[in-house]
Design a protein around this nucleic acid. Structure first.
Lengths: 235, 235
DNA sequence: ACCTGAACACCGTTCAAGT
DNA sequence: ACCTGAACACCGTTCAAGT
C-alpha cells in the first residue's frame, strides 16, 4: 500500500512524451475544439466531445477554460487568425476595405458553424481587434470621420457575419430547399410583389451578392456621414 | 373488459372543457412555446418544457410538429404577427420603409431570444412574406428597380435581424460587460485606431444607432443600383 | 388516430475525492 | 495543483405499447 511502489503494474510513463499523455493545456483544448468545429459543425463542438478527443473527462477542461461560452470565444479568435489584414501597400483604401472584408467572410464560410458562432459570441480577442483596426484604417484613409468610421465598422462586420451565417449553416444547400419551396408556392394574390420578385430574391451566387452588398454598404456610409466631411470644428 | 364501459372509474370528462385536458393542437403548442420563449428565452423553449407546460410528454408533440426546428419556424412566424405593415397611407415611401423596419426590430427586441431564433431559422411563413411584401412595396415606390429592391430587402432584413440579436441576447446589459472591458484594455500601440475609436465603437443608444444604420443602408441602396434608374429597356 | 412511458444517446456543470 | 468519476439536471428523438 505504500505510495511510489516501483513495482506498480502500470506502463511506467514510457520514455519521452511518446504516447502516454501530453499534458492538457488551453492551447491543446482550443486546437482540438476548432478541429471538431471544422469537422462536425457547431453542435459537434461540445465540451464532452473535446474532452473525449483529448482522452479525458469534460470536468478536466474547467481547469483551463471557464466553460462552453468561454471556449467558443477562444475558438472564434483562433479561427480569425486566418483573416488576412496585411494588404499590398499602395492600393486604394477601397480595395483594402473590400479585401479585408472578403478575407473575413471567406474564413467564415470555409468553416461550418463559425459564422453562427461569431454571431453569438463577443468578438474582443486580438484577432478581432486586428480586423477592426484594419477596417478603421481603410475607412479613415477614405476620408470618413472617426465617428462614422466606428459605426460603419460595426455595420460592415455585422452584415458580413450575418451573411456568412446565412450561407454556411448546417449546409447551405439543404437550407435552400425549404425556402425555395416556400417561395415557389407563394400566392400571387396575397403577395404580388414577393411573387414577382421570387426569382430575384433567390438569385446570385453568394459571392456576387456579397460583393454587391459590400459596395452598397460603402456607398451608404459615404453618403450618410454622421458629421459633415469638412468644417469639423464646433457649430 | 368490454370497451366503452359506462362505469369506468375516471373523473368523467367533467362538464365543459373546464380543466381535464383540452386536446392538444398545433396552435396550443405554438402558443405555449412562444410564451416560454418570452419568459425564459430561447434555451427555455425546449420541446420537453413545452410538453410539460401542456401537461404531457415530449413525444406527444410529434403528432403536430415535425421537431424542434419546425416548432421554431412556427413560433417565429407567430411572433411576427405583431409586426405592423399597415402604414398610414399618404406618407412617403421612405417613411413607410423605416416604419416597417422599426416595427420589425421592435418586435425582435421585445422578445428575448426571438432575434437569435430568426437568425437561425428560415423565415418563409405568411408573416415573413407580409413583411417582405411591404418592404418591396415601399422600395419600388421609391423608384428602385425590382432586381435591386429584392436584394435590398434581403440586406435590410438581415441587418435588422442581426442588430436585434446583438442588442437583445441573454441580456444586452450582461453582454456589454466583457466587451466594454476588452475595449477599455486595448493597447494603444497594437491597435491605435481601435484605441482612438473605443468610445465611439460602444456609443449610441441602440435606437439611435439602428436609425443611422437604416438611413445608411437606404442611402447605399439608392446609390448602388444593379440597373440604371432610367432606360430600363434593352438587354 | 392519438397519446404515452421508457429508452437511447447525448448535453454543461459541479463537487467530493484522489494523487 | 491538477485531474478524475460520478452525479445532477437537463436535452431531442424514436419506438413499441396502449387505448
Amino acid at each position: 500500500m505504500s505510495a511510489r511502489n516501483p513495482f506498480a503494474g502500470r506502463p511506467v510513463k514510457s520514455r519521452r512524451s511518446g504516447k502516454v499523455k501530453d499534458p492538457l493545456s488551453r492551447d491543446r483544448i482550443v486546437d482540438e475544439a476548432l478541429g471538431l468545429l471544422v469537422r462536425n459543425g457547431l453542435d459537434g463542438m461540445s465540451l464532452r466531445a473535446v474532452a473525449a478527443a483529448l482522452e479525458t473527462g469534460a470536468a478536466s477542461l474547467y481547469a483551463y477554460v471557464d466553460g462552453l461560452d468561454s471556449l467558443r470565444a477562444l475558438v472564434l479568435d483562433r479561427a480569425l487568425e486566418r483573416v488576412s489584414t496585411t494588404v499590398t501597400r499602395r492600393r486604394g483604401w477601397r480595395a483594402r476595405l473590400t479585401s479585408v472584408l472578403e478575407s473575413y467572410i471567406r474564413v467564415l464560410m470555409a468553416t461550418p458553424g463559425l459564422a453562427q458562432l461569431a454571431l453569438g459570441t463577443l468578438a474582443a480577442g486580438p484577432n478581432s481587434l486586428r480586423v477592426i483596426e484594419a477596417l478603421l484604417d481603410a475607412l479613415e484613409d477614405g476620408g470618413l470621420d472617426p465617428a462614422t468610421a466606428a459605426w460603419a465598422v460595426d455595420l460592415l462586420l455585422l452584415y458580413a457575419t450575418a451573411i456568412g451565417a446565412e450561407h454556411s449553416g448546417p449546409d447551405a444547400a439543404e437550407r435552400m430547399g425549404p425556402i425555395t419551396r416556400a417561395l415557389s408556392l407563394v400566392s400571387r394574390e396575397d403577395f404580388p410583389r414577393v411573387y414577382a420578385a421570387r426569382r430575384e430574391l433567390l438569385s446570385g451566387k453568394g459571392e456576387e451578392r456579397f460583393e454587391w452588398a459590400v459596395e452598397t454598404l460603402i456607398a451608404g456610409v459615404l453618403h450618410n456621414r454622421r458629421r459633415p466631411k469638412r468644417a469639423a470644428s464646433g457649430r
